[in-house]
């Protein structure tokens, strides 16, 4: 029972960053501040979508989405207080996702000329013009 009491006391000390082995109770003020930031960023991204930004548009909307994703991962998903191994795994998965997208794009553009020359997709497209 003494261990349970110790754990409870420890968990109550919100601003204590010391790791007691099983995670860290995120202070309520942090959770609410993160939520308010996420809502503000959502409104910002909708607002920005009404402004013509040309080719920069995709970078702006993906930039805002990435800031939101980082906020969720670091605070809601407790990555700030997680084990380095778990964080490393997430970084690796993002690395492999980038490889997946990049290699497919490179491969696709490699053969795009042949696809355009032979594909029925483009024949139909030019037929509507």
């Amino acid at each position: 029972m003494t261990t349970a009491a110790a754990h409870t006391n420890h968990a109550h000390a919100d601003h204590d960053d010391h790791d007691h082995g099983m995670g860290h109770a995120m202070p309520l003020s942090t959770l609410i501040a993160v939520f308010v930031s996420l809502i503000a960023l959502t409104i910002l991204t909708v607002y920005m979508s009404n402004i013509r930004l040309g080719s920069a548009e995709i970078f702006v909307s993906m930039g805002i989405a990435t800031v939101k994703a980082i906020l969720v991962a670091v605070y809601f998903m407790h990555m700030r207080h997680d084990k380095p191994l778990n964080i490393l795994l997430v970084v690796f998965s993002l690395f492999f996702m980038t490889l997946f997208i990049a290699f497919t794009l490179v491969d696709s553009s490699e053969y795009q000329g042949e696809i355009n020359a032979a594909g029925p997709f483009v024949i139909e497209k030019s037929a509507t013009k």
Binding site: T3, M62, V72
Partner: peptide
């Protein structure tokens, strides 16, 4: 305080579903 793991694990999954929507919303709607 000594046993909250399952709440945490389900929470992580739920946040990931939210994370995916954070990207889907601008990619499809905006």
């Amino acid at each position: 305080p000594e046993y909250f793991g399952p709440v945490d694990y389900v929470g992580l999954y739920w946040h990931l579903v939210d994370l995916i929507w954070i990207y889907l919303f601008p990619l499809l709607y905006l």
